[in-house]
């Protein structure tokens, strides 16, 4: 199903796009199984319509928006972003969405809103992976308010000019290209504005391996592997050396968000 959007030339990366097939069959979406081949096989049980997202917490105008109102909230743009997974592989994906800041403006956060929390759907009937206790469900991710307001932070409804396939986080997800992939919550049903730093799913599961910020950083290794290099899916084959990972995944415009912070400690 097509999803019309104009390419935003400010974010039109001139790198080879990942093949649609790879981007839709190699997914980490634990609600549909822990193997990266699982989501493409099992996510057909997800019902993406009707769908609504409730926005609550420290806002002047809490509201519940259905998918159509969300889609109409701002004009849809196509943006080609790098995606770097914490596991050491990367893709280049043309997403369709708009900056999250559009939504934030609409609900008018109060002065108490310091962080924003994204909650993924938790429904055992639609998500077979929830039966296994690999993570604390529902999946929760979060950002600091200034990160959430950064224009790069994309509230996303489509990819490759079409609506999101279920296994990629349909019908609405976040895309945060300067952070490891798991920071971008999928199939979002709730967005909460909160005072304290949210307890996020992977941080709860393994705090020494997955920090709250999880910015792409070649100098901070994962305890079990180096983050200095990555393998671009579909390009870096068996007989190619892995490519160097860039600080903030190459999105240096976010650096000012973290000035003065020790990113080795606050990884």
């Amino acid at each position: 199903q097509k999803l019309a959007a104009n390419l935003n030339s400010a974010y039109a990366l001139v790198e080879k796009k990942t093949a649609y097939k790879d981007a839709t069959t190699y997914n980490n979406f634990y609600e549909f199984g822990t193997d990266k081949a699982d989501p493409a096989i099992t996510a057909h049980t997800l019902k993406t319509r009707p769908w609504s997202v409730s926005i609550e917490g420290e806002v002047k105008k809490p509201m519940t928006l259905d998918l159509d109102s969300l889609l109409k909230l701002a004009s849809l743009e196509e943006r080609i972003y790098r995606l770097r997974c914490v596991e050491g592989w990367s893709m280049v994906i043309p997403w369709v969405g708009y900056s999250l800041s559009n939504l934030i403006k609409k609900v008018e956060p109060t002065g108490n809103a310091k962080y924003i929390e994204f909650v993924t759907l938790e429904d055992k009937k639609q998500m077979p992976g929830l039966r296994s206790p690999v993570l604390e469900w529902p999946y929760v991710e979060g950002l600091r308010m200034d990160e959430a307001n950064h224009p790069l932070a994309l509230l996303t409804f489509g990819m490759y000019g079409e609506v999101l396939p279920n296994q990629n986080g349909a019908p609405v997800r976040m895309v945060l290209p300067w952070k490891y992939g798991f920071k971008s919550a999928k199939s979002i049903v709730k967005i909460r504005f909160v005072k304290d730093q949210p307890r996020t799913a992977w941080n709860i599961a393994a705090p020494s391996e997955y920090g709250f910020y999880s910015n792409v950083n070649p100098d901070v290794d994962h305890p079990r592997w180096s983050q200095a290099t990555e393998r671009r899916i579909g390009e870096d084959g068996l007989f190619t050396r892995k490519r160097k990972t860039l600080m903030f995944n190459g999105y240096s415009e976010v650096a000012s968000l973290y000035s003065g912070m020790d990113l080795k400690k606050l990884f």
Partner: peptide
């Protein structure tokens, strides 16, 4: 699988 290109998106991981 190497020759039939059936190792999936991440061949090294598969092997």
């Amino acid at each position: 699988f190497v020759f039939l290109d059936k190792l999936g998106a991440n061949p090294v991981e598969f092997i």
